[in-house]
């Protein structure tokens, strides 16, 4: 299958490993990955901070860029959530754009959705010999409703010791610009999330969103806990060879 990668601006710029892993994983599974170079950002930060007008050209660009592709994947629950639930709304009065956005959205998948719902694989043949806990990010969980798909994928990874995260469904406190505008509250939420991660005794905390991982990982690193954050795509891309 030919799959267009929407890398997301955050992964592209700060966490290329997550996007690379997505490419390598899908290629290993026998698919062709293309990266439309005109892509930049889905506009979520603008939309969620109250700058819909600024986001409109980004939505238009995103739609134009990905329109030619039948299947689009992004290693981010939150960006796929924005594409699916916000783009048509931002298009607003431009009914033509809204319809096109809806159509692109219907072909856009978060990585675990793509693997399980579209490609029909639960065992991607990965090997990752670590004790891992999974944080279901809010937008994967409550906007996309990916449910246990990421866990099903992780359970099939050889060598991986999956430990359940207590209070997993609680927000980590990132929330985009929330973590800046309400830094104290965000930090308090993060503190509880980190405590739960540490309680598991895991050496790796994974999730489907680079943004939340940046937040959790930043906190864990500051406390010198030794626990690493690794994107789900990177775990699924790992093999004995790597």
């Amino acid at each position: 299958m030919r799959i267009a990668l929407f890398a997301t601006c955050l992964a592209d710029t700060m966490f290329p490993a997550a996007a690379k892993a997505t490419v390598l994983l899908l290629e290993r599974l026998g698919h062709e990955v293309v990266f439309p170079a005109e892509q930049t950002c889905c506009g979520q930060m603008h939309i969620n901070t109250g700058y819909q007008k600024d986001a409109l050209p980004l939505v238009r660009r995103h739609v134009r860029t990905f329109e030619p592709y039948d299947v689009i994947v992004a290693p981010s629950g939150s960006c796929v959530g924005s594409v699916r639930h916000q783009h048509a709304m931002v298009a607003g009065a431009d009914a033509g754009l809204a319809a096109r956005a809806t159509s692109v959205a219907s072909r856009t998948f978060e990585l675990s959705e793509l693997l399980i719902d579209v490609l029909g694989v639960e065992d991607v043949g990965a090997y990752f010999p670590h004790r891992v806990t999974y944080h279901p990010t809010c937008h994967s969980l409550r906007v996309l409703r990916v449910g246990d798909k990421p866990l099903r994928l992780l359970r099939n990874v050889r060598g991986l010791d999956l430990v359940e995260l207590p209070d997993a469904e609680q927000c980590c406190g990132f929330g985009g610009t929330f973590s800046v505008k309400n830094a104290d509250t965000s930090t308090a939420m993060l503190a509880d999330k980190m405590r739960h991660v540490l309680d598991t005794g895991a050496d790796v905390c994974t999730a489907g969103d680079a943004s939340c991982l940046m937040h959790i990982g930043g906190g864990l690193s500051r406390l010198r806990t030794g626990v690493r954050t690794v994107h789900l795509a990177e775990i699924l891309a790992s093999t004995e060879a790597s």
Binding site: G50, C138, R142, V143, C171, G175, F178, K181, N182, M189
Partner: peptide, 10 residues
């Protein structure tokens, strides 16, 4: 007030 949320959706 509209910013007093991480938009977690709970």
């Amino acid at each position: 007030l509209p910013y007093a949320s991480s938009l977690c959706g709970a």
